[in-house]
Design a protein around this nucleic acid. Structure first.
Lengths: 247, 247
DNA sequence: TCGGATAGGCGCCCA
DNA sequence: TGGGCGCTTATCCGA
């Protein structure tokens, strides 16, 4: 069993060689930059990635309690009783005082892969463009070239009465912010096209009551559309009943 | 050096005992739930926390490439050549096929501490309430209790001409969404108080040009205010010139 | 680099 | 539990 001061030497070396570093420790953390924070002593898991990213994780929860972004420099200051990891980037710094190191690993990681993700808002917009009747009967999206001229609008076209129609997609429950966003786009189109009558449709699997009220107050409408692939594999496995093959 | 199948036994045991688990591996990942994803084989760091949180980190970047939230159950399926970690929560599941385990740690972590954070939007609102002239001369905020009646409005009061005034704080550059948010609050107050003349002020360190235009179109105004503690410690260290004590 | 928008956002508070 | 919203949001994408 190595002592913390022994680990400190290894850590110093690993930092110099830009390894990926993962260790468990008891520590106290100060941060200053975009905000300031203090975290009293406790057990955490710390990851320092090859790109300088530093993550501090507590024993629960998804998010790191403290972190530094890519490009941060790390230097270990090892004096007498104290081992302090000092991290610094353009506008932020952090000090982690390491009281005890529980385990320590460093290694080179090789991963050229990037994740393939389906079911995003973009996928939802593509689905609508390929199958416009999902929005409503007779809806005709503009050509892609025409559409891209209008920037961030998800789907843009004419309804069966040739009225300009802006469709804003949300993959989750549409909220007040989604309605104001749609409202902004409709106003932008009214202005840029010089047309008074522009319809706005919010396409989402659900909408909150307040958002629906505001939507209707503004003369817009809601269309229930689920993002593609949503729970598709999960539903398949549900049919198999026992995903784990036991219980 | 243990083999992956040896690690598999340890992992199985650690999962049963609800340890915190950290290991490096080469793996392939499939996810299905709110969306679907596939990540081909590569080296990653995996953390499984005591609350069921699972994080998969690639060698770069702040965010986990895949994850499962608190409350997820994990079961190791170890058959013939394949070691697969199957994770399942109410509406999502994930399969991590472990091709090779590079290192493995598990332990109990003890951390009852929570982080103390300064410089948030809330701190900014408090600063304004304690020093209302930051917004403008003669501004009088309503009491805290009064303003909580209207829910989420950051700061709410009367200007020197007794006009109701809504102040929305942003700790970062104010954007279009911030303006529409302010607009929503002003309209809410107009309605609930039955007053036509309500002022809106956006308080932030900066504002984007488009947002400023929209703000002014709506008759609102911008006030440059920095969140408290912003870079305070950093500036102090800058005066010391050499934070690392070297270079 | 800045601006605008999404995210499998997360996490917190409150009705 | 769901709505509303901040976040040291991070990350992507286009101008």
């Amino acid at each position: 069993m190595l002592k913390t001061s022994d680990y400190a030497m290894i850590l110093k070396n690993a930092l110099n060689k830009q390894y990926s570093i993962i260790f468990g420790c008891s520590c106290e953390i100060k941060y200053s930059g975009r905000a300031e924070s203090y975290l009293p002593e406790g057990d955490r898991i710390i990851i320092i990635k090859e790109d300088g990213t530093l993550l501090v994780h507590q024993p629960t929860g998804n998010n790191p309690v403290n972190y530094m972004k890519q490009g941060t420099e790390h230097i270990l200051s090892h004096e007498k009783d104290s081992v302090v990891l000092k991290s610094r980037s353009a506008k932020e710094f952090m000090e982690i005082e390491l009281k005890k190191i529980h385990f320590f690993n460093y290694l080179k990681l090789s991963d050229g892969q990037s994740i393939l993700l389906k079911g995003t808002e973009k996928d939802m917009a593509d689905m609508i463009i390929n199958n416009p009747s999902l929005v409503e009967d007779g809806f005709k999206p503009l050509s892609m070239e025409e559409h891209t001229k209008y920037g961030f609008i998800d789907v843009f076209g004419y309804d069966k009465g040739k009225i300009l129609t802006v469709v804003e997609c949300k993959r989750y429950t549409a909220d007040l912010a989604a309605v104001t966003q749609l409202r902004r786009y409709v106003e932008k189109i009214q202005e840029s096209k010089g047309v008074k009558k522009v319809r706005g449709i919010l396409a989402a699997p659900k909408i909150s009551p307040n958002a629906l009220k505001m939507l209707e107050d503004w003369g817009f409408s809601f269309k229930e559309i689920k993002p593609p692939k949503y729970l598709e594999e999960f539903d398949k496995s549900q049919q198999r009943l026992d995903y784990f093959g036991q219980k």
